[in-house]
Computed example of a mutant assay.
Amino acid sequence: MRSETLINDQAIDSAFVEIESLGQFDAYVAAHSGSLAGCRIQGVDLRDRGWELRAGDVADSAFLGCLLSDSVAGDLRLRGALVFPPSPHLPFDPYRIALYTAEELYDGIADKPYEQTTDALAYHWDQLPLGREDVLGLVLRSLHDDSISDALDEWAAGHRIVGVMGGHSLERGTDGYRQAALLGRSLSRNGFTVATGGGPGAMEAANLGAYLAPHPDAALAEALDLLAAVPGYADVTAWARAAFTVRERFPVADSGVSLSVPTWFYGHEPPNPFATAVAKYFSNALREDVLLAHADSALVYLPGAAGTVQEVFQAATPAYYGSALARRMILVGVSYWTKVIPAWPLLRKLAEGRPMESGLHLVDTVAEAGILLSRP
Rank of each mutant, 00 (worst) to 15 (best):
R327L: 09
A315M: 02
H32P: 02
V230H: 11
E154I: 12
L299V: 09
A59G: 14
G353Q: 07
F274K: 06
D217H: 11
E288L: 14
H144Q: 05
V363M: 05
A202M: 05
V309E: 14
S335N: 15
A73D: 03
R40V: 13
M329I: 04
K280M: 03
T193L: 10
E20G: 15
I341K: 09
Y301A: 09
E115R: 13
A234D: 15
A305M: 12
F313K: 05
Y177S: 01
G198K: 07
R2Q: 13
I12K: 10
G232M: 13
L325Q: 14
F25I: 01
L46V: 08
P342F: 00
P113A: 09
V300P: 05
A306F: 14
D107I: 00
A55P: 08
G333Y: 04
F244M: 02
L36M: 11
H361P: 00
F16H: 12
T237P: 11
P91C: 09
V290H: 01
G74L: 01
A228Y: 05
A298W: 03
A210K: 05
P85D: 09
D119M: 15
R132Q: 14
Q310S: 15
A298K: 04
R189K: 15
M1K: 08
V332D: 03
A120R: 07
S21W: 04
I97F: 00
P355H: 09
A285N: 10
R241Q: 15
M1C: 11
M203H: 08
L99K: 01
L292H: 14
D364I: 05
A279N: 03
L121D: 05
S87A: 14
S61A: 15
G34H: 08
W264M: 03
F274I: 09
Q116D: 14
L299N: 12
R249V: 03
